[in-house]
Design a protein around this nucleic acid. Structure first.
Lengths: 188, 188
DNA sequence: GTCTATAAGTGGATAGAC
DNA sequence: GTCTATCCACTTATAGAC
C-alpha cells in the first residue's frame, strides 16, 4: 500500500468538498470515492468537522512552505512583496482545489468562529511583518493594520479565484502585473 | 395580518441562514421560527433553493436602490466613487445579515454556478460604468476591467465584514477614510 | 392559503467481527 | 486498521383536509 487510507480519504474529501460544498458532501460519498469503508473514515476522524479541520491543517502547511520568503536579505520591500504575492498566486493556480477549499472553510459554519478567525490570522503572519516593515520605512501609508490585513486577504482570495477560473490568463504578464500593482497600490 | 406569511418566512430564513449557514438550516426550522406550518413554506416556495433565490432577489433590490448614484452630475470621479463606496459600506453596516447572506450565496452550492456569476455581475454594474469613465479620463490605470471588478468585489466584501464585526469602528473616520483610500488607490 | 400528518430518503455516527 | 451492517434523528417535499 503506497498511500495510506487516511491520505486517500483526505484526497477524496478535497475533491468532493470543492465540487459539492462541505455540507453538500456526505461522509459516505467520501468513503466511497476513497475506496474505503464507512467505518474506516470514522476510525481516522472522530467527526466530519475533524476531517475538515485536518484537511485544512495539511493544506495550510503546504501553502505556508511555498509562500514563506526564504531569502529576505538585500531585497527591497517591493521586491519582497512581489515575491510573496506572486508565489501565493502561483500556488493557487497550481493547486486550485486547495485554494477553493480555503474559501469554503472560511465561509463554512462547520468549524467554530474561533477556529476560522485563527485560520485567517495564521495565514497572514508573514504578510503582517512585511507591512509593518514597509510602514516603518515610510513606504506604506499608516492605515490601521487590521484593516489592511482583511483588505489584502479579500484581494488575494478574489484575484486567486479570478486566475483559477481563467487558466489561459495565468501567464499573461499584463494581467499578472496589473494584479500585483493593484495589491501594491492598496498599501501606499 | 400586517405582514404576509411569505414575508415572515423570508425574514426568518435570513436570520437562520446567517447564523447556521444555508445548508445548516432546515426548512422545518424556518417554518417554526416564522410561526408558519411546514406546508405553507412549500406553498410559497417550490424548493429550498427557490426560497434562497427569492430572498437574494429581495435583498439585491434593496441594496441596488441605496447604492445607485442618484446625482452623478457635476461631481468628480473621486467624489462619485467615495459616495458609492461609503453608501455600500453604510448599507452593509446597517444590514449586516443581508451582507453576510450575500457572501453565503456567493459561496453556496445551492444555486447553480450560472446564477451565482450573474449575481456578481449585476451587483457591480454601476461600478463598471464608473471605472470605465475614470479610465477614459486618465484618472485610473488601464488594468483589465474584469480583473479590477473581481478585485473590488473582494475588497468590498472583506472590508464590509470587517466593519460589521467591529461596530464601534464604523464611525471612526480614520478607519473609514483608510478603507476608501485603499479602494481608491487600487484603481490608480 | 394554511394546516396536520407523513412519506421517502439521507445524514452522521456506532457496534462488533475479522 | 478495516470491514459490514445498522441505528435513528433529521431532511426535503407531498397529500389532502379545512
Amino acid at each position: 500500500m503506497s498511500v495510506s487510507k487516511k491520505q486517500l480519504i483526505l484526497d477524496a474529501a478535497l475533491v468532493l468538498f470543492v465540487d459539492n460544498g462541505i455540507d453538500g458532501t456526505s461522509t459516505a460519498s467520501i468513503a466511497k470515492k476513497a475506496n474505503v469503508a464507512n467505518g474506516t473514515l470514522f476510525h481516522h476522524f472522530q467527526t466530519k468537522a475533524d476531517l475538515v479541520h485536518a484537511l485544512y491543517l495539511m493544506i495550510k502547511e503546504q501553502f505556508a512552505q511555498q509562500i514563506s520568503p526564504n531569502n529576505a536579505n538585500g531585497n527591497s520591500i517591493e521586491q519582497l512583496a512581489s515575491n510573496v504575492w506572486n508565489d501565493a498566486i502561483d500556488w493557487s493556480v497550481a493547486n486550485p482545489n486547495k485554494l477553493q477549499f480555503f474559501k469554503l472553510v472560511i465561509h463554512s459554519h462547520i468549524l467554530s468562529a474561533t477556529i476560522r478567525r485563527e485560520i485567517m490570522n495564521q495565514q497572514l503572519g508573514f504578510l503582517e511583518q512585511l507591512i509593518i516593515a514597509g510602514q516603518q520605512q515610510g513606504i506604506f501609508a499608516q492605515y490601521p493594520l487590521d484593516l489592511i490585513l482583511d483588505n489584502c486577504q479579500g484581494q488575494f482570495l478574489s484575484v486567486s479565484s479570478f486566475f483559477i477560473e481563467r487558466p489561459q490568463l495565468t501567464g499573461d504578464i499584463k494581467y499578472r502585473e496589473a494584479a500585483f500593482k493593484m495589491f501594491w497600490n492598496t498599501l501606499g
